[in-house]
């Protein structure tokens, strides 16, 4: 079985996000970029499935410009067998990404697609669900545990009310949550090996997918700045201060 894993290049979770002064987007100049943390967890799980003998090949896929090859190489260094960059100059929206994935699924005859539950930049949480619908296959989202047996997967999902266990038939789409696993560190020699692993570049047009722009960004604004607090002496002053501000 082949597993396709989606990995997106996003601003590193440690970076303080700054909105550009003209509101046209988020500052990425000189900013550290990494693999979306949820995607890294998806890749770790795929590698564990392969290491347990339940898959033959793990393929990492990223959609974007050449800069995302850096994240693909990291995925290869973690242990993926090969990588595909779907080359696109413009940033793609979830529906287009799902359509592109579907083409790759068909091309590779993948038995499982593993994705992060969302990317930490757009927070859309749509690609996995859309892909499952387009593909006509089961989906198991927000996975915190995955067990494979035969052509079925038992997936524990993190839902508002607690945990839910569902069984899905493969092929399927699984999107993963934070508690599924802790991704491995990359070994230095594996970085060198990753340089020699195959990385295929496919222009998005060659997949027969035309970028759609159903969503339009109108502006970006940072959250309002918190006002400076004051120290009050006692409860009476607190009440008084709240009253003068019309909060009580």
């Amino acid at each position: 079985m082949k597993i396709l894993v989606g990995i997106k290049r996003v601003i590193d979770y440690n970076v303080r996000i700054r909105v550009k002064s003209d509101g046209s987007g988020v500052e990425t100049d000189g900013v550290k970029m990494s693999i979306n943390p949820f995607d890294e967890i998806a890749l770790e799980e795929a590698l564990r499935i392969r290491e347990a003998g339940n898959a033959d090949e793990v393929i990492v896929v990223s959609l974007g410009g050449n800069e995302c090859q850096q994240q693909l190489r990291t995925g290869l260094a973690m242990g993926a067998d090969r990588a595909i960059q779907v080359d696109s100059a413009e940033s793609l929206q979830p529906l287009t990404i799902a359509r592109a994935f579907l083409k790759l699924v068909e091309k590779e005859q993948a038995g499982l697609v593993m994705l992060g539950k969302q990317a930490i930049d757009g927070d859309n949480s749509q690609t996995a669900q859309m892909l499952a619908a387009l593909w006509g296959r089961p989906q198991a989202t927000f996975a915190s545990a995955v067990e494979l047996s035969g052509n079925k997967a038992m997936v524990t999902r993190e839902v508002d009310a607690g945990l839910e266990r569902i069984e899905v038939d493969l092929p399927a789409v699984i999107s993963v949550d934070l508690r599924l696993n802790e991704p491995r560190f990359v070994k230095l020699p594996d970085i060198m090996k990753a340089k020699r692993k195959p990385l295929e570049v496919i222009p998005v047009e060659d997949l027969g997918v035309a970028p759609e722009n159903d969503l339009q960004f109108t502006s970006h604004t940072p959250p309002p700045v918190r006002e400076k607090g004051i120290m009050v002496e006692d409860a009476a002053q607190l009440v008084a201060e709240l009253k003068t501000r019309g909060l009580l």
């Binding site: 991704p183 560190f185 070994k187 230095l188 020699p189």
Partner: peptide, 10 residues
């Protein structure tokens, strides 16, 4: 820890 990875020598 579970993620332990021994550093290599260069």
């Amino acid at each position: 820890k579970d993620t332990y990875m021994q550093g290599i020598e260069i």
